[in-house]
């Protein structure tokens, strides 16, 4: 009959209306600044730069290869390569970013910079309260603001960080073994396995 559906709908909304006063589990609202839900582990908002050790400048994993800058779809990353080189975690001399800025207002949280980084240097943070009252300077985060320790990475994404650490450790032992092998073997024989090593290293 005409109007039947309307009455059914009205009954449904009336149930919701009355129910919201008596049962607390109906209400899904979280009173945000006072109450917070713990973020899920896979949450990602904005990138940060990982460093090892205590000194952020020395331990920075980033080698300023600028792949992320090129891959970034909205072009929100600005990198300036350093003129000199500095030893990295493996002790190899590498370039480092003299300037590394990410614009919060442009970033779209796509995580492509993380996907393309060969050095596990840039990761996604779950910090989402990035609003400031400074429209220009405040929204442009420089490398000091972006640098966060590996321990911090472990606290926000434990599973992922453990995998990354295992990978880096494997790489390190491999590099050490290679170096040891290189040192032990005569230089003439070392020329043959070296090309085989290269694709494996490039694939990382």
């Amino acid at each position: 009959m005409l109007g039947e559906g309307i009455l059914k709908g009205l009954a449904e909304t009336a149930k919701n209306f009355a129910g919201s006063f008596v049962s607390a589990e109906r209400m899904t609202t979280v009173q945000y600044p006072e109450e917070r839900i713990a973020p899920v582990e896979a949450a990602r908002v904005f990138p940060f730069l990982v460093y090892d050790g205590a000194d952020w400048e020395a331990g920075m994993r980033c080698v300023a290869c600028q792949i992320c800058e090129k891959e970034c779809p909205p072009k929100c990353i600005y990198i300036e390569k350093s003129k000199d080189k500095k030893p990295d975690a493996l002790g190899k001399p590498q370039f480092y970013p003299a300037k590394f800025d990410i614009d919060v207002s442009v970033c779209m949280s796509c995580q492509i910079c993380v996907e393309v980084c060969p050095f596990e240097a840039i990761k996604m943070d779950n910090e989402f309260e990035l609003a400031t009252d400074d429209r220009f300077g405040g929204l442009l985060q420089d490398r000091k603001q972006l640098a966060k320790s590996n321990e911090y990475y472990h606290t926000i994404h434990p599973t992922e960080a453990a995998e990354v650490d295992a990978r880096l450790a494997a790489e390190k032992t491999k590099a050490a073994a290679d170096a040891a092998a290189k040192a032990a073997r005569p230089p003439a024989q070392a020329a043959t396995p070296a090309p085989a090593q290269k694709p494996a290293g490039g694939g990382e």
């Binding site: 909304t13 209400m27 609202t29």
Partner: peptide
């Protein structure tokens, strides 16, 4: 309206 949609 909020109550109808189980909001506050």
């Amino acid at each position: 309206l909020g109550r109808i949609q189980n909001r506050i």
